[in-house]
Simulated assay, not measured.
Amino acid sequence: MEIRKVAGDRRRYLSLLLLADEQADMVERYLDRGDMWVLVETAGADNADEVLAECLVTDGGAGVLEIKNLAVVPEHQGRGLGRELIEHVAHTYAGRYHALLVGTGDSPLTVPFYERCGFTRSHVVSDFFTRHYDHPIFEGGVQLRDMVYLKRPLA
């Protein structure tokens, strides 16, 4: 496996991006900003590389790098691929940024994942999902309402 920076059309990864942010017009708001990384399983028997995960990061200002989208193909979840991308991003941008920020729904699945990756709660934007999405979003049996921001220092 290897991690590659995406050059060219990012829309070819839209189905993967929509796993983490299920409303296309919300993805369009940040799709062409920042850097996008993909974790790829290199050419198998059919000579085709398979993208297993992606991470899109943007400059949040004031020395903060923000993860806007992180997704792993469902059949490859739970193998540490999301964590591997986070560690790659943290290592790549350390020195240029002092912190890594991520906003996510207040979900019993997602928040603990980021906490296990070294993030701590920073702040909350109340009713983000009910104000900005055209339909209710559920994760882990919970309707997402608030955007929870978590932060991790970069050394």
Rank of each mutant, 00 (worst) to 15 (best):
L81D: 00
T92I: 00
E66T: 14
V73C: 08
E66Y: 08
E66K: 07
E87K: 11
T92L: 00
E75W: 04
H91N: 01
L85S: 06
R79H: 06
G78Q: 01
V73M: 15
G78K: 03
H88Q: 05
H76P: 02
H88R: 06
H76Y: 13
V64E: 15
H91A: 12
L85N: 10
L85C: 10
G80C: 03
H76K: 14
L81F: 13
N69E: 12
E84C: 11
E66P: 00
K68W: 03
A71F: 03
N69Y: 11
P74C: 04
V64Y: 14
G63H: 12
Y93N: 04
I86D: 00
R79E: 10
V72F: 06
T92C: 00
P74G: 05
L81E: 03
V73T: 13
E66R: 15
L85Y: 08
R83D: 04
L85R: 13
H76V: 01
L85D: 10
L70D: 01
R83L: 07
K68E: 10
Y93V: 02
Q77A: 07
T92S: 08
R79V: 00
L65R: 05
A90C: 05
N69M: 07
L70S: 10
I86S: 02
T92K: 03
K68Y: 05
G82N: 09
Y93Q: 00
L81Y: 10
I86M: 04
V73Y: 06
R79Y: 10
L81A: 05
L65P: 14
I86T: 01
K68C: 14
A71S: 11
V72L: 09
E75K: 12
E87Y: 07
L81V: 01
A71N: 07
R83K: 15
P74D: 07
P74N: 06
G82V: 01
